[in-house]
């Protein structure tokens, strides 16, 4: 960020300029296994950041630390003006209200209809009135192209449709940041396209997104920033064309093998 030389630096960064998410030297261990070894990076508002890397390099763990599904060991993460710290659970609720996450395995609630899946959190957490919550559901379902599935149960939908409902469910909370953890990895190739399209629309619409993905073509087209993780560290980071000119042998090898 560059400030005008003449303008005095503001004492507090204006909210719009502060990154949506910032990792500050985050470490995470499971028992004696250190999975994140001090990672730092920032995600600006409206940015799309892709985390790539070999299986086991800590991508999912990093993502899950953002909304507190995993508790970090040391360091901190700034998320939408709140702080995720190793001990503090204090801000977790505030963070989760602002951050949506979509999982590889959809994780829809099987006992609820599509509409009920979507309206549950707005009604319970934000105390949105039922009629308004249904209007929100209609809106987000339209966004993911599933308006006709409002009354279906998850088991009646294809994997791609379930994943789009999961995206809609997260969007219904009007999050400031969306996290995606390999959301197309469980899908047949012919179904990944419909999900990627929804995500690309979101990105074009200005949503701040952090996604773990193996879809290199998608990352090269949509990402504002790509972060290559290797053995629990940010090994290489750069703009979306970084994959076409990798600097480290590890990334070169990763790109070469495809996975």
């Amino acid at each position: 960020m560059t400030l005008h030389a003449t303008a005095p630096a503001p004492a507090v960064e204006p909210a719009a300029a502060a990154p949506a998410v910032r990792f500050n030297a985050v470490h995470k261990s499971f028992g004696t296994l250190e999975v994140l070894k001090g990672i730092s990076f920032a995600v600006g508002r409206g940015e799309v950041v892709c985390l790539i890397g070999r299986s086991g390099s800590g991508k999912s763990t990093a993502l899950r630390c953002i909304n507190g599904l995993e508790r970090i060991t040391t360091g901190s993460i700034d998320v939408c003006g709140h702080v995720v710290s190793p001990d503090g659970r204090a801000d977790l609720h505030a963070v989760r209200k602002r951050v949506g996450i979509v999982f590889q395995s959809y994780n829809l609630f099987p006992h609820l209809t599509v509409e009920q899946n979507i309206t549950l959190a707005p009604r319970r957490v934000k105390k949105t009135a039922p009629a308004e919550a249904r209007a929100i559901a209609a809106d987000v379902l339209a966004k993911v192209g599933l308006s006709d599935k409002r009354d279906s149960y998850p088991e009646q939908l294809s994997g791609g449709q379930q994943q789009r409902v999961a995206i809609a469910r997260a969007l219904a909370m009007q999050p400031e940041v969306m996290l995606f953890d390999e959301v197309t990895s469980a899908l047949d190739p012919e179904l990944t396209g419909e999900v990627l399209k929804v995500m690309e629309d979101l990105a074009r619409g200005g949503m701040t997104m952090v996604l773990v993905t193996h879809e290199m073509a998608f990352a090269s087209r949509v990402a504002d920033k790509i972060i290559f993780m290797h053995q629990g560290r940010v090994h290489e980071a750069g703009p979306r064309d970084m994959l076409s000119r990798p600097e480290t042998p590890e990334l070169r090898q990763f790109v070469g093998t495809g996975l």
């Binding site: 909304n67 507190g68 599904l69 609720h93 989760r96 209200k97 951050v99 949506g100 996450i101 999982f103 395995s105 994780n107 829809l108 609630f109 549950l120 959190a121 319970r124 957490v125 469910r169 997260a170 909370m173």
Partner: peptide
């Protein structure tokens, strides 16, 4: 009940009771 269901509920900011 699958751990992923608990996590999905947590991620939507539901509290423990909800």
């Amino acid at each position: 009940v699958a751990k992923t269901q608990w996590e999905a509920a947590d991620s939507l900011a539901l509290n423990g009771f909800q």
